[in-house]
Design a protein around this nucleic acid. Structure first.
Ligand code: MN
Ligand code: MN
Ligand code: ZN
Ligand code: ZN
Lengths: 139, 139
DNA sequence: AATCCAGATGCAAAAGCTTCTCATTTCTAT
DNA sequence: ATAGAAATGAGAAGCTTTTGCATCTGGATT
């Protein structure tokens, strides 16, 4: 039950927050912009302001319910944080986003940070390329 | 001689472009914002507009003279492109930026892209953490 | 050295995403 | 049900980056 998560985050369980969380859970593509969320709300007849969408997404991010990405040349993109760290590979032509986890890369990152004298807190690896579809002209 | 590079890029060798390139070459920290560049110009008594700084940096980027980074929570940052690919590790506390190259990571990225069906065109790995100085309270 | 003009610049205005302000509304604990 | 704190909506504001346009300049040509 998702409203538990909202409550656990110390946030009141309000209609906008519940709706936005639902949208994130049901989104066909996991990675959505604030505007994407806002449009779904409008289409659903909800009267929720864009400012609220931004506010709620930011609060969810702070609460660890949501992760924000800043892919190159794209606006902030949000996805449900389900605790499974992963990185991203994006098609620069059609915007498709795929996820991956690579053990070797993860380990190397830790080693690199140590060697540079850093306590690693986070990292992000974005791979950009042309996806199979686009390569085959389906775009 | 740097004005050669400007010319090679098909750009007129103008005072703003020469000055900006000089600033990039002499910068104490390689990674500077447009505003940083602008301030140095002002301090040097140059009457060059911020719009020109942005325009020139973008042209340099297109020409391959400069690389632009979009580190998290920071504005666009530019650095001279000297042909040596590298990735970055940043201190989230003081903003320090270090560079590194890791052969293993580079190879894995290529493999990951292939496996996901992508022709990799680019990638960027940002590691965030706390640098040694900051960990020791020097901040 | 004087002329010419495409390309470059400066300034101000515009974009465009995101955040903030504040009056009003909605939760949720009594 | 009531009250107080928290949240919301609408629009204004913020900020970085880009653009439009009149003016200027580099540099190629006489
Ligand atoms: Mn993801
Ligand atoms: Mn660098
Ligand atoms: Zn594609
Ligand atoms: Zn530091």
């Amino acid at each position: 039950m998702e409203s538990q998560d909202i409550k656990k985050a110390g946030l009141k369980v309000t209609l906008p927050r519940v709706k936005i969380l639902e949208i994130l859970e049901r989104a066909e593509n996991r990675h959505v912009t604030a505007e994407d969320v806002y449009k779904v709300l409008l289409d659903g007849g909800e009267e929720i302001g864009l400012a609220t969408v931004y506010r709620v997404l930011t609060q969810f991010e702070t609460a660890g319910l949501v992760t924000r990405h800043r892919f190159e040349g794209v606006h902030s993109v949000f996805e449900l944080d389900e605790g499974r760290h992963h990185d991203h590979i994006l098609c620069v032509r059609c915007g498709r986003v795929d996820e991956f986890v690579d053990k070797a890369v993860e380990e190397r990152q830790q080693a690199i940070a140590e060697q540079a004298g850093y306590d690693m807190t986070d990292h992000c690896l974005y791979i950009y390329g042309i996806c199979r579809n686009c390569r085959n002209g389906h775009a």
